[in-house]
């Protein structure tokens, strides 16, 4: 993702300067022209919304989960946004870390690939993966395909449901509910394609990770200091307990 972005950026100024040179303008005029062009190209450049979650600032208060529930009236027993607790170690060397979870709005969403009705798709204008509940037949193929278990069947609509980055808020310039409510300010939301956005700068200057990178989905939700410990590590003899706080007690 970054490679392509960098390529675009390196190409754009050189083309501008070449055009400016042909027009016979001076060096300063070239720079000015390039600067003037920049906002226009930024406006046409597609937005890719993403989130950065700094787990060091998360206190596991579930305010994000509650805000999400309230925002969407998510039916009882289902979660679009949830916080996992990861406990590990043996006394006295123990820790408990928090891992807030939501849809990753992947660059290569497998859920979209498998949808037989086109009900779920990745929006070209902002990269948000959405579900059209009137098109969705509730076949659960996407529920199976999501490596992050981010999807569920909404028992009221009968359609697949999941986090949509609060599209109704974001499209009006307001941050998603979970971001707004986070008391630790652990969540940063913004445009990953804009190198000057807060989220892009933070990602560029911090060691970040995504969940299950091996799935090849290229998530757009990044974490700082995420604890990637998994209950499978019990096989190695170390104590790890993951509490998902979901109806499905275990991680997929």
């Amino acid at each position: 993702m970054d490679e392509e972005g960098l390529m675009d950026k390196s190409k754009a100024p050189s083309q501008n300067s070449r055009r400016a040179f042909l027009k016979g303008l001076g060096a300063s005029a070239t720079l000015a022209a390039a600067a003037a062009v920049r906002p226009a190209s930024a406006a046409t450049r597609p937005v890719q919304y993403g989130m950065l979650i700094d787990t060091r600032r998360c206190i596991g208060c579930h305010a994000c989960s509650v805000a999400c529930k309230a925002e969407f009236d998510v039916p009882l027993g289902n979660t679009r946004s949830w916080v996992e607790y990861v406990e590990k170690g043996e006394y006295p060397n123990v820790s408990r870390n928090f891992l807030p979870r939501l849809c990753n709005h992947c660059r290569h969403p497998n859920c979209v690939d498998v949808c037989p009705t086109g009900a779920t798709y990745k929006r070209e204008e902002d990269g948000i993966v959405v579900v059209d509940p009137d098109r969705c037949i509730g076949c659960k193929y996407c529920v199976q395909a999501c490596p992050y278990d981010a999807r569920f069947i909404n028992p009221v609509t009968g359609a697949a449901d999941k986090c949509d980055f609060c599209l109704h808020r974001v499209s009006r310039g307001i941050a998603p509910a979970c971001v707004e409510t986070c008391i630790g300010r652990a969540r940063i939301f913004g445009d990953l394609n804009d190198p000057n956005s807060e989220i892009s700068k933070k990602i560029a200057t911090n060691p970040v990770s995504v969940l299950r990178p091996g799935m090849g989905t290229e998530p757009n939700v990044y974490y700082i200091a995420a604890d990637h410990s998994d209950e499978h590590e019990r096989r190695r003899g170390s104590y790890v307990r993951v509490t998902t706080h979901r109806k499905e007690k275990e991680r997929r």
Binding site: D113, G118, I137, V156, G158, A159
Partner: peptide, 30 residues
């Protein structure tokens, strides 16, 4: 009978399958 839409009372929502042809194995299978 296994469809979520069927459980929610949208009994004929499955006909949406016939409005689309894509490379989803489920669409091809339909």
């Amino acid at each position: 009978l296994e469809l979520g839409s069927f459980h929610a009372g949208h009994w004929f929502r499955f006909l949406n399958l016939y409005t689309v042809i894509n490379l989803s194995p489920m669409s091809v299978g339909t």
